[in-house]
Simulated scan of single mutants.
Amino acid sequence: MDLYYIQGILLLAGINLMAVLGLSLLTGFTGLFSFGHAGFMAIGGYASAMMTVKYGWPFIPALLMGALAAALVSAIIGKLTLNLKGDYFCIATLGFGEAIRLVLDNVQYFGGARGWPGIPNYTNLTNVVIINVVAVIILANLIRSRHGRNMIAVREEELASQIVGINVFKYKLISLMISAAYAGIAGGLMAHYMTFLQPKMFSLVKSTELTIIVIFGGLGSISGSVLGALVLTSLPEILRSFSNWRLVIYGLSVIIIMISRPEGLMGGYEFTPSSMKRLLTRLKNKREDLPSQMEGGKPL
């Protein structure tokens, strides 16, 4: 397999991971399902491309502007929708994502439905890996902080969180804004990798793909999000030799994992030095206990 082709798959996995990390905070740690994150990616992608193409900004400040634009829009959406209960917030985000796509279809400043070519190619494997590492570190420290524990409390029991003094709406809004900012950066990375933007790149299918990756990797697990993004981004390319059947096999693979392991690949666990040490200790103890469980070469 061509090295350039492998780098391309890793780049796409890294771009997806950036959006998935944000969605993991919102869905996995705060308990809010969203089907509109492709809309936040679109806002970040178009905003960052506008900064580099129209105003000549450097790449990183343009990415941050895309993140800021997505976060500001999410704050407005959150003010209007976060008080909705049950599935209504999910439906509202779905409508938001489709509305963003339809608006961009009709904005000729960005090329409309025909798309926007000529975006500079600034995204490469090095800066994607660095941005992903920084994003994982920031998210991990946020989850371990008091604010992260409050978000987890909101996920576990919203009413009890209110009783103990947690401002539920505030933490939902913070989670949504950070999640949207991550998606905005992912959109900016995609824009400067594809060098072309078109509204249909950010359809409901993209939002669904991101949600599937979060659930596949394991709700409440950053490690699961990383693993899920790598597996589900590369799987269709690995199956490309099956031609038209590859997406069918991809879907079946996801369904089999969901049925056999509904908690996801990681199931809320994390790959940390302490957890790996405990795992190695457990495996070592099992090997040492095996002879004592045998009598005359047969298990007791």
Rank of each mutant, 00 (worst) to 15 (best):
D2N: 10
L3D: 10
Q7W: 09
Q7F: 11
L10I: 07
L12F: 12
I15D: 09
L21T: 03
G22Q: 05
L25P: 02
L32N: 08
F33G: 10
F33L: 14
G44T: 00
G45Y: 00
T52D: 03
G56D: 05
W57E: 06
F59L: 06
F59Y: 11
P61Q: 05
A62Q: 03
L68W: 01
A71I: 00
L72G: 04
S74T: 05
I77V: 11
G78Q: 08
K79P: 04
K79R: 15
L80G: 07
T81I: 06
Y88T: 02
Y88I: 03
F89I: 04
I91W: 06
G97D: 04
G97V: 02
L104V: 02
V107E: 13
G112C: 08
G115H: 00
P117M: 11
P117S: 14
P117E: 09
I119K: 09
I119N: 10
N121M: 14
Y122F: 15
T123E: 10
T126I: 13
V129K: 09
V129S: 15
I131E: 06
V136A: 15
V136T: 13
L139R: 08
A140C: 07
N141H: 07
R144S: 14
R144N: 12
S145L: 05
S145G: 08
E157R: 04
L159H: 01
I166L: 08
N167I: 05
V168N: 04
L173P: 06
A180Q: 05
A180C: 09
A181D: 00
A181S: 05
A186N: 03
G187W: 00
G188S: 11
G188T: 03
M190K: 04
A191V: 01
Y193H: 13
P199W: 03
M201R: 03
V205R: 14
K206Q: 11
S207Q: 09
T211Q: 10
V214I: 12
G218F: 07
A229G: 12
L230Y: 08
V231L: 15
L232I: 02
L232Y: 01
L235K: 03
I238E: 09
S241T: 02
S241G: 09
F242W: 12
S243L: 14
W245Y: 15
W245V: 14
V248E: 05
S253T: 14
I255D: 07
I255F: 09
I256V: 15
G264E: 02
L265Q: 13
G267I: 02
Y269K: 14
F271N: 06
P273D: 04
L280I: 07
L280Q: 08
N285P: 00
K286G: 07
D289S: 11
D289N: 08
L290H: 01
G297F: 08
L300M: 08
